[in-house]
Nucleic acid binder design. Structure first.
Lengths: 244, 244
DNA sequence: TCTAATGTGCCAGTAAATGGCATAAATAGC
DNA sequence: GCTATTTATGCCATTTACTGGCACATTAGA
C-alpha cells in the first residue's frame, strides 16, 4: 500500500500504541509485520510519537528493541457533565479526608482533570466546588440516629442542588414534627457521615440547615434560583468547616 | 493550502471539536473561516466526525447551524500508574460511603475508568482493590484518640502496601508500650476515620492489625512478600467490613 | 416566492505519505 | 578487533488521498 487515508492512519497509530503497551519489548521487525508497513514508515511513525511526547525508549544493537516506558494511560475517556462533576467532587472530598494512603497524588490528579476541561467550563466547575464544604466528624449522639435517605429522594436533591432548582421537601424536625416547605439548596455541608443542606427556607424566609436524612420526600419545583454569597449563611452552622 | 500533513489534520480536527464545544451554535461559514478551509472540506470533516460517533446535530435553512450536543469530554488525560490507582481507590471508597449526592453515577465512572485500562493491567488493578476494605464507623471513644499520622511515614506505608515490600515499624500499642517489628501489609481496613493495616507480623509470627496513626516510624525493608488469601486474616478484626 | 442555510456529486491539481535502497551508528558475542 | 544484529537517517520515485471549486439539491424561515 502506497498511501493511506487519515482514518486508516489514525487507526494504525492507535494500534501501534496498543502493541507497545501490550508487551514490554518489541523489535521493529515484529512491529513492522504486525502493522503491515515497511520498516522505514514504522521508524517515521515512532519518531512522530516521540515528538508528541510518548515516552518511547529504544536500544540499539544485538538484543535491542523498542519499549514504551512505565506510564499508564487513561485515554479517550468520555464522561458526561454529571459524571465529571461527581468525579471531581469525589476527589475533593477524598482529599479532605486526609487518608494516609491517598493524599500524595490526589491534588495532581485533580489538577489534571481540571485542566482537561474546555477553558470555558472550568469556572463553572470551580464554582460548584465552592458550594460544597467538609466539616468535622459528627458527634456520636448525632450519628447514632443516622438514617440513610431514600435513593429516589437523593436524586431529586442532587439535581436541585446542581441545577439550582427550587425544592419542595417534607422535613422531620428534631422534635419529630413534620412540615412541608420550599427551599433553595445553596450549599452542602458534610459532617461525616451526615450531609446537610444550607438553604434559603421560603417558609421561614430565612437561611436554615437541613439534615438530608430527615428529608422524607423531595420534589423539584420548576423555578430556578440564583446563588447567594456564602456570607449570608455562614452564621448558622457549627464551626470547623473548610471549603474545598 | 492544497494538502495537509497528518499532524496538521489531527490538530485541525481537535480544533474543530474545541470550537464546537466552546459555542452552542455555529454556522459553517464561521467554522470554515476559523479553520481556514473551504466549506466543502469542512462538511467532509463534519461527516467523518458524525460517522465516528460524535453527537453532531444540524439544522438547515435560515437561522440554522451546527451544534455539538451536551456531552462534556475529558480527553487526552494522561495519568501515571500510581495516580490511576489512587483515582480508582478514591472512587471505590466514595461509593462505599453511600453519600446522597454521589452514588448515582460513581459506578459508571468506575466502569469507564476501568475499561480505559489496557487489558493486561485490569487484573492488577482489580486485585489491588480487593485488598482494601471499608468498615463501619469507629466508635466515639476510638475516634477521640485519633492522631493524624506523619506524612513521611504514610508515604512509606503506602509504597510498602502497593508494591508489597516488607515494612519495619515502631508501633505504640494500646497500653502505650513501644515495639519495633517487621510486618507485611497485606490488607487495609478503613473504619472511618481510622485506617488499619491487616498484616503478617514477623515478631509474633501471626496475623495482626495495626492502627496506622499508632505507627510512629516506618522504614521499607527490601524483601518483597507475596499475598496470603484473605481467609487467613478474616478472624482477627471486628465484623462489618465489606470488600470493595 | 425569495433567501439563507446545510448537504452532495464530480473533477483536476498537488503535496504528503509510502517503500526501497544505501548507509550510519551502536551494542553484544566471540 | 571482527561480525552479526538492531535501531536510525537520508534520498528519490511513485502514488493516492486530500483539497478547493463549482454546480445543484434540500430544507426552513420570512
Amino acid at each position: 500500500m502506497i498511501n493511506t487515508s487519515f482514518e486508516q492512519r489514525t487507526e494504525r497509530r492507535n494500534r501501534l500504541i496498543g502493541l507497545l503497551r501490550s508487551e514490554t519489548y518489541w523489535k521493529t521487525s515484529d512491529l513492522r509485520e504486525q502493522l503491515g508497513v515497511s520498516q522505514r514508515t514504522l521508524m517515521r511513525e515512532l519518531a512522530e510519537l516521540k515528538r508528541a511526547g510518548y515516552p518511547i525508549e529504544s536500544e540499539r544493537g544485538r538484543g535491542g528493541g523498542i519499549r514504551l516506558n512505565g506510564r499508564w494511560g487513561v485515554n479517550r475517556l468520555q464522561l458526561n457533565h454529571q459524571e465529571v462533576v461527581e468525579l471531581i467532587l469525589s476527589l475533593a472530598i477524598m482529599e479532605s479526608l486526609q487518608s494516609p494512603l491517598l493524599t500524595s497524588n490526589l491534588k495532581a490528579i485533580k489538577q489534571k482533570l481540571f485542566q482537561a476541561f474546555p477553558q470555558e467550563q472550568r469556572s463553572a466547575v470551580s464554582n460548584l466546588r465552592k458550594r460544597i464544604m467538609i466539616g468535622s466528624n459528627a458527634g456520636a449522639d448525632t450519628v447514632s440516629r443516622y438514617v440513610t435517605p431514600e435513593h429516589t429522594i437523593s436524586e431529586s436533591i442532587a439535581e436541585a442542588f446542581l441545577e439550582q432548582y427550587g425544592l419542595e421537601i417534607d422535613y422531620e424536625s428534631d422534635s419529630g414534627a413534620q412540615t412541608t416547605r420550599v427551599i433553595e439548596a445553596h450549599y452542602i455541608l458534610l459532617n461525616w457521615p451526615i450531609w446537610y443542606i444550607t438553604a434559603w427556607d421560603h417558609l421561614r424566609e430565612d437561611s436554615r440547615m437541613f439534615r438530608i436524612d430527615r428529608i422524607k420526600n423531595a420534589r423539584i419545583v420548576a423555578s430556578r434560583f440564583s446563588l447567594k454569597p456564602i456570607e449570608d449563611f455562614i452564621g448558622i452552622y457549627t464551626p470547623y468547616y473548610q471549603s474545598i
